[in-house]
């Protein structure tokens, strides 16, 4: 028994090493003095200097964060009220219809979302660029918020609402003094989760971005196709730090109650689908 657990520990360590090696490799070469990702010739910060001096890249970085923040804000608003609406529907099967529709975008492959949005925007005559990317990001973020807020609503004791009503609270008072404080952690988790989705997204953006506008993922794709450029490594070191901060924030919020839910929408949808409608 003892020997087996030792073997298990060894296995865990090996898999963890494999998972992290490529990431640390990427970050390590950000500090390389040379220009290639092949041999480490000495420590230098010059690739960071190049990156920060690259105004185009910095502009793209700014765009990416603006899109992420704006889309999460709107998606959180719409998604929270959507979740409230679903929660307040008293007919179980109607709830399930909405949840089913909600989950379509969660399980659809990114290419399908991207391609179908491209058709939609073209038919609507919308110019591809900042606007189309923003709308697309809002659209794929909404179901994530719904899936994170709805469980909070479901675990709330409905007697709280009735009590508030009996005590004379108006609907908007019930909402702002009873419901919103209760589901606040879910809303914040949804907000941060959608930020990371938006920052990460490549496929959907790639389809609807057009020529003039670029986000980080699309830019990395374009540069990676041309070969190795160590300022990309510097950028990845920076982004890793950002992710780390977001992970910590997200876990502070989510770990209030829920434990270890996955970040990615696939992981989230798994859990939600696994849990079913409560």
């Amino acid at each position: 028994m003892k020997k087996q657990s030792l073997l298990m520990k060894f296995y865990l360590i090996v898999v963890f090493l494999l998972m992290y090696l490529p990431i640390f490799y990427l970050i390590l070469f950000a500090f390389n003095r040379g220009d290639y990702m092949t041999s480490f010739t000495g420590f230098s910060l010059r690739h960071f200097a190049t990156m920060f001096a690259d105004t185009r890249l910095m502009g793209i970085l700014l765009n990416t964060f603006i899109i992420a923040l704006l889309s999460s804000l709107v998606a959180t608003l719409v998604g929270t009220f959507g979740a409230l609406g679903i929660y307040l529907l008293k007919r179980r099967n109607l709830q399930n219809v909405f949840l089913g529709l909600n989950n379509i975008l969660m399980v659809s492959p990114d290419v399908i979302i991207g391609a179908s949005f491209l058709i939609l925007f073209t038919m609507a005559g919308l110019a591809l660029g900042f606007g189309s990317v923003l709308i697309a990001h809002i659209a794929f973020s909404i179901p994530i918020v719904v899936l994170l807020v709805l469980p909070k609503l479901n675990e709330m004791d409905s007697a709280l609402i009735r009590a508030a009503q009996d005590l004379g609270a108006r609907p908007y008072q019930v909402l702002s003094y009873v419901i919103l404080p209760y589901i606040w952690t879910g809303i914040m988790a949804g907000f941060f989760m959608t930020i990371t989705y938006s920052l990460d997204d490549f496929a959907v953006t790639f389809f609807v971005t057009g020529n003039g506008f670029t986000t980080l993922s699309v830019e990395i794709y374009a540069r990676a196709r041309q070969g190795i450029d160590l300022s990309i490594n510097a950028l990845s070191a920076l982004m890793f730090l950002v992710s780390l901060v977001l992970v910590i924030i997200y876990y502070f919020i989510a770990n209030h109650k829920q434990k270890g839910s996955g970040k990615h929408k696939r992981a989230t949808v798994n859990q939600q689908l696994g849990g079913g409608v409560q």
């Binding site: 490799y25 092949t38 990460d200 996955g262």
Partner: peptide, 30 residues
């Protein structure tokens, strides 16, 4: 905590991971 370590790589941009492998696997790569 260990589960968090499993999740963390999924927060790293997909493109950056692919890019790491271009460096690792290239003709003169590591």
């Amino acid at each position: 905590f260990w589960l968090l370590l499993v999740i963390l790589p999924t927060w790293v941009n997909l493109l950056l991971k692919a890019y790491a492998f271009i460096g690792l696997l290239s003709q003169t790569g590591t």
